[in-house]
Write a protein that binds this DNA or RNA. Structure first.
Length: 923
RNA sequence: GCGCCUGUGGCGAAAUUGGCAGACGCGCCAGACUUAGGAUCUGGUAACGCAAGUUGUGUAGGUUCGAGUCCUAUCAGGCGCACCA
């Protein structure tokens, strides 16, 4: 019987569907295992062969764990809100929901063909009201919470209100945007609106006036991780900094925990490092610099407190709150001109120019240690969003301050012995301090590190500052001026104050609009919705939530996807707990993977979830690049010359669809049909073939190098696709897709098939297996069992090939060997395994067949082969019975005829016997 | 600039704790069988050399009986952060 993959795959996919083979329920008699893929955004282009790479890897693991006796949760869903569908809607008027549903259907069809073991009853879609009800619910919780820094957890905002009523801000231990102080009396005297304003400074989900990344072309604000090098990641449009009132999440309050708990998860070092960078912890000190002739004090942040004696000027960010109070009337015009100039530059322009610019405010600050008066400047090299938005400038030891000092001709005072600052600053935190002592503080002669510690201690004692840890991690901007996203469960009261909808009113459904564009008055698209008000007529929020809102807790919803009363039932959560294995791309390192951790920690603080981290182990699959093919057209003709003959002609390379090329040979007929202009194309062939050139590029439509998994499935079958994707190389590595090698994997499956059938008959017997057969299969069991745990699927596939070749050569027909082979193969190539499993007479699914264990006894060798090395080279082999001791091995080696030949009469200085491996004879 | 990762045949890649470098596959070469094909099977395939042999894991050193693997320096490529004080 022939291996008819199409029949087999359809048959078993249908069987699994009808039998609910992959349905998962809580089962407290079994240990659980949660395997998750990052759910896809269903784009209009469909899947290409790169997408399933991670899905296949996790599917293999999930199936393997199930065969090992675990109750495996392995769900899939769709990140359905997003910009592309909305941009498409703007262009075509087609409702984003329509395109989204269509794309999801296409994705599902493609996924189904590959034979994944997803429990589709648990599917989630972020745009489904039953799903986003819980996104909105979590937002409301955040709105009604503040972060208690002493307890290190989110607490109800009412607790903070009670604290304010009794004690004011004294000892409130609350994370906030800007630090403020008031007494209980002051709080109690505030109006409702004033109190609301104050609380916004503490809420975890808050509306705040912040610097945002505004993208005019997209008509919306973007989060930091959605912007790269001054342009939007989606679309590449310029992004500018703008002060706007936006919904934000106080992610920064969780910075310390997000950093610390990285040590508890099993992720790659590189992605943890990326997150550490993004969180950006830096230890330093805040210090107050009085302004001369005023009560005002400038608060600055520095990590180099030791350089206090070298401060020769101060710099404020253009957006600094101090600006008003510090600028003298004489400098007003100059400052305004500068601020105007800065404001009109986008961040991108600012970065490209990198020109030193700034303006003097007219005021001077007093160095609290030296008492020197130093000028205060404003410059855009100081960022408003980091630290306090003001710095003490030490040009001798900071390259940015140095450049500024040079430009404005300010003094540069070196503070480290031997530092030459005539050409550039000395930034290293290393050396002996000098020029740094007076009657208040003596740093001369100390190492930089000691000096930092001593200065910090001094400023704490004297109250001119305090030790402070700063984080680079900013709060997440949470509103988007867009249509296709979750509506905020927020309305505005008569005073214009944002108020929470009651939980009972969730989900607040996304309304219909006539167009997906902003209103004439510049309001977001929801401004077009009719009756976008509460039951008693109060206006609802017009912004929607960003893409990462729906993806932040989806892994929890899979545990209990149909629950109307909770995001996830407490007991269900306590069973599934957290994702044991999460597979996805590195591109989410500073987005989704931070937001999810934050979101999870917030829920954890309230006990809604039982684990502090959502994803225990993370595996990042690499990107599959495209392998483009080229044909070479001779200039000004319709004649094409084969790759190795092109040097004799003046040619233009043209991308050609990789699907009409096989092993770099062009299918000339298909090429002529491909495009009308090539209909009459002529060819100069080599060896009767047209050989195409190739290059590795991103897989994209415009390069004609997109390989569709459906085509591979049709031509070779899903099992071949699965095996081949794994065989291509390590899951984590990025590599180009190259269909050329797929035949080898396909041949392997055919050979495997041939072990079971001869003609139309099953050739499997109940005969006892031979020792060699048992050895072959047990070697495989051991190898594959080890490889799966470390995701070394490529070497597993290689081991399968070796084993099947051995069994074929031995003409193995014994069930004792072939049955475990089928079970091992099941995670990798489930369809053929299922077919063979049933061929062997089983009527249950191979998914539940128990993963075999290897027996070391079968692997034991009766004799051990030693390689004898002389003069650092392998010279000959000896064979001794297993268990021979080292001295005997040495004796056998040295008495071998080869020893005499290679030693040439010399006496060995030393002989090293490595057990079961080799004998090294040193002269 | 700072941090992280990766460098192995014509290609994708293997190589437990340092122990015969290049498993497995593609491609290529030779052969078998064939109503000839982009089918199947067998053998070969790191480089140099007729050979014995020698050289080989980006480069240069070091540790070691022994280094792809460990250490130091350096080069190249990729990724992340980046006026972050």
């Amino acid at each position: 019987m022939e291996y008819k993959y199409q029949e087999i795959e359809q048959k078993w996919q249908q069987y699994w569907r009808e039998h609910g083979t992959y349905k998962t329920e809580v089962d407290r008699n079994k240990p659980k295992f949660y395997v998750l893929d990052m759910f896809p955004y269903p784009s209009g282009a469909g899947l290409h062969v790169g997408h399933p790479l991670g899905y296949i890897a996790s599917d293999i693991y999930a199936r393997y764990k199930r065969q090992c006796g675990f109750n495996v949760l392995h769900p899939m869903g769709y990140d359905a809100y997003g910009l592309p569908a909305e941009q498409y809607a703007i262009q075509t008027g087609q409702h984003p929901e329509v395109t989204t549903v269509k794309n999801i259907a296409r994705y599902r069809e493609q996924l189904d063909k590959i034979g994944f073991c997803y429990d589709w009853d648990r599917e989630v879609r972020t745009c489904d009201p039953a799903y986003y009800k819980w996104t909105q619910w979590a937002f409301l919780k955040m709105f009604k919470s503040y972060y208690n820094t002493a307890r290190e957890q989110a607490r109800p905002i009412d607790e903070l209100v009670a604290h304010f009523e009794a004690h004011g801000t004294e000892g409130c231990n609350a994370a906030c945007g800007t630090e403020e102080h008031f007494t209980a009396q002051q709080w109690n005297a505030m109006s409702k609106v004033e109190r609301n304003d104050v609380l916004m400074n503490y809420r975890i989900a808050y509306r705040g006036n912040t610097m945002v990344n505004w993208c005019a072309q997209l008509g919306t604000v973007l989060a930091n991780d959605e912007v790269s090098e001054g342009v939007s990641i989606r679309g590449g449009y310029p992004v500018e900094q703008k002060m706007m009132s936006q919904w934000c999440l106080r992610v920064s309050a969780y910075a310390a925990r997000l950093l610390r708990d990285l040590d508890t998860v099993d992720w790659t070092e590189s992605i943890k490092e990326t997150q550490r960078n993004w969180i950006g912890r830096s230890e330093g000190a805040e210090m107050l610099f009085p302004v001369a002739g005023s009560d005002l004090q400038l608060l600055i942040f520095t990590t180099r407190a030791d350089t206090i004696f070298g401060v020769t000027f101060m710099v404020l960010a253009p957006e600094s709150e101090y600006e008003e109070q510090v600028v003298t009337p004489a400098q007003r015009a100059a400052v305004d001109a500068y601020l105007d100039e800065v404001k009109h530059k986008t961040e991108r322009e600012r970065m490209i120019e990198k020109k030193v610019s700034g303006v003097f405010t007219g005021s001077y600050a007093v160095n609290p240690i030296t008492g020197n008066e130093i000028p205060i400047y404003i410059s855009d090299y100081v960022l408003a969003g980091y630290g306090t938005g003001a710095i003490m400038a030490v040009p001798a030891h900071d390259s940015r301050d140095y450049a500024f000092a040079r430009h404005f001709d300010l003094p540069i005072v070196p503070l480290i012995e031997g530092a030459d600052v005539s050409e550039e600053s000395f930034d290293a935190k290393d050396g002996i301090m000098t020029n740094s002592s007076n009657d208040r503080l003596q740093l001369n002669g100390l190492q930089v590190k000691e000096a930092i510690a001593k200065t910090k201690a001094y400023i704490e004692q004297t109250g001119i500052g305090r030790v402070k840890v700063n984080y680079r991690l900013r709060d997440a901007i949470f509103s988007r001026q867009r249509y296709w996203g979750e509506p905020f469960p927020i309305y505005y009261d008569a005073d214009g104050q944002p108020q929470a909808l009651d939980e009972s009113q969730l989900p607040l459904q996304l309304p219909e609009v006539d167009k997906f564009l902003p209103t004439e008055t510049g309001e977001p698209p929801l401004g077009r919705a009719k009756n976008w008000v509460t039951a008693d007529g109060q206006p609802l929020e017009l912004c929607t939530m960003p893409g990462f809102a729906g993806s932040s807790a989806y892994y929890l919803r899979y545990m209990d996807p149909h629950n109307d009363h909770a995001l996830v039932d407490k007991q269900v959560d306590e069973y599934w707990r957290q994702v044991d294995l999460y597979v996805g791309g590195t591109e989410h390192a500073t987005g989704h993977l931070i937001y999810s951790r934050f979101w999870n920690k917030f829920l954890y603080d309230y006990g809604y979830v039982c684990e502090a981290e959502p994803f225990k182990k993370l595996v990042n699959q690499g990107m599959i690049q495209g392998r483009s093919n080229f044909v070479y057209r001779i200039k000004d003709t319709n004649k094409f010359v084969s790759l190795n003959l092109k040097k004799d002609y003046d040619v233009t390379p043209i991308h050609v669809d990789v699907n009409i090329v096989k092993a770099d040979a062009l299918d000339i007929e298909k090429f002529r049909q491909w495009r009308p202009e090539f209909q009459d194309a002529e060819f100069i062939l080599e060896n009767g073939k047209y050989i195409c050139g190739w290059a590795i590029e991103k897989m994209s439509k415009s390069m004609f190098n997109v390989v569709n998994p459906d085509d591979i499935v049709e031509r070779y079958g899903a099992d071949t696709l699965r095996l081949y994707e794994m065989f291509l190389g390590p899951v984590e590595a990025s590599k180009p897709w190259d269909t050329n090698g797929i035949d080898g994997v396909n041949r392997f499956l055919k050979r495997t098939w041939a072990l079971f059938f001869k003609g139309d008959d099953v050739r499997v017997t109940d005969d006892k297996a031979t020792a060699d057969e048992l050895k072959s299969i047990h070697k495989l069991i051991k190898k594959v069992s080890g490889d799966i745990e470390t995701f070394s699927y490529n070497t597993s596939v290689a081991a399968f090939m070796i084993c099947v070749n051995e069994l074929t050569a031995m003409k193995t027909a014994s069930r004792e060997v072939l049955e475990p082979l089928v079970v091992l193969l099941a995670p990798f190539a489930p369809h053929i395994a299922e077919e063979l499993w049933h061929t062997l007479g089983h009527d249950t699914t191979v998914c539940d067949a128990q993963w075999p264990k290897w027996n070391e006894d079968y692997l034991k060798e009766s004799t051990i082969k030693y390689t004898v090395m002389i003069k650092g080279r392998p010279r000959f082999n000896i064979e001794v019975p297993a268990g021979t001791d080292a001295a005997e091995v040495e004796r056998v080696a040295l008495s071998h005829e080869g020893a005499a030949k290679w030693l040439e009469g010399a006496t060995p200085k030393k002989v090293i016997v490595v057990p079961n491996k080799l004998v090294n004879v040193v002269l």
